[in-house]
């Protein structure tokens, strides 16, 4: 006896129900991306001459490579900050009562649902020349002239970290919730200290959550156009703005298409590295 066909089984629905969305994605998601790929493989704006000219241009141009490099580095920095700040939140969440748990979740959740322009705007108010940090430091007499915080790498990293923090914290809370609390106690009663237990037991067991959080945070941080451009200002150029300038201001569509494809591949590469690590860590954590 083979498996009963899906349509007979009362607990499942036919795959036909997925057809409308599949068709929609084929027309409006897959087709545009293929068209993007097609155009990026042309040397002229009209799309008449095939060639790898756009990619050669990008890959031999120190300026373009610099933009790609600084974007990937930015993602790594933001992800690291989010992990260091987000993990203790997830840890604290497991230690408090249900009421405080809801409050913590809502605090974490709120920025995720607040407009990203509003969140970025807030950082302009905080980091600006007349902002809170400068005003406080000046009134305390620590500094005489305002520090330059806005339009710096530090400013972009801290603002992006706040904007993307929920994407890191939510998977971590889920992962820590799945760890058997007895393991923690066992480790401690066997004589391992709290720090050792944390680094040898809790952290390794939460790796699936860490990796899920890092993937989401990294992907979101490097594509966060608004925060990058408003807090970074004109002097700092990252891939999304570079793409937008080439496409909109310069109308250089084939090059913009090539930038998009290179950017897409970079994101996919990072995501697949994380996914592979995640699969390895699940084998480890599931034991």
């Amino acid at each position: 006896m083979g498996a009963a066909p899906a349509s007979r089984d009362v607990t499942s629905y036919g795959m036909g129900l997925a057809a409308p969305l599949a068709l929609f994605f084929l027309l409006f998601f897959v087709a545009p991306l293929l068209q993007l790929l097609w155009l990026s493989l042309h040397n002229d704006t009209a799309g008449l001459h095939w060639g790898l000219g756009q990619y050669l241009h990008f890959l031999t141009d120190p300026f373009s490579l610099g933009v790609l490099g600084s974007t990937l580095l930015l993602g790594a920095e933001v992800t690291a900050v989010c992990l260091v700040l987000g993990f203790p939140i997830a840890w604290l969440y497991q230690r408090v009562g249900p009421k405080l748990q809801t409050i913590i979740i809502l605090i974490v959740l709120l920025p995720l649902l607040t407009s990203v322009v509003v969140r970025t705007f807030a950082w302009i108010v905080i980091l600006g020349r007349q902002g809170i940090i400068n005003a406080t430091l000046q009134s305390l007499g620590v500094i005489d002239t305002p520090l330059k915080l806005l339009y710096t790498q530090f400013g972009v990293v801290i603002a992006l970290a706040q904007v993307q923090m929920p994407l890191m914290t939510l998977p971590l809370i889920t992962a820590l919730g799945r760890i058997d609390p007895n393991l923690d106690d066992a480790s401690c009663s066997l004589g391992a200290g709290s720090w050792r237990t944390f680094f040898r037991i809790v952290l390794p067991l939460s790796l699936p959550g860490v990796i899920a959080g890092c993937t989401l945070t990294y992907a979101a941080a490097i594509t966060a156009f608004i925060t990058q451009s408003l807090v970074g200002g004109g002097q700092m150029l990252f891939m999304p703005m570079y793409l937008y300038q080439q496409a909109s201001t310069l109308q250089n569509w084939p090059f913009a298409a090539a930038i998009s494809i290179i950017f897409l591949l970079a994101v996919l590469a990072v995501v697949s590295v994380f996914t592979t690590l995640g699969r390895m860590s699940r084998g480890y954590g599931g034991a």
Partner: peptide, 21 residues
């Protein structure tokens, strides 16, 4: 995986692609 992919792919690249199409 297909239906979830817009969550990780750079939306700006998709925006440009959609405009081109």
């Amino acid at each position: 995986s297909l239906f979830m992919s817009p969550l990780v792919l750079p939306a700006l690249a998709f925006g440009l692609a959609a405009l081109m199409l």
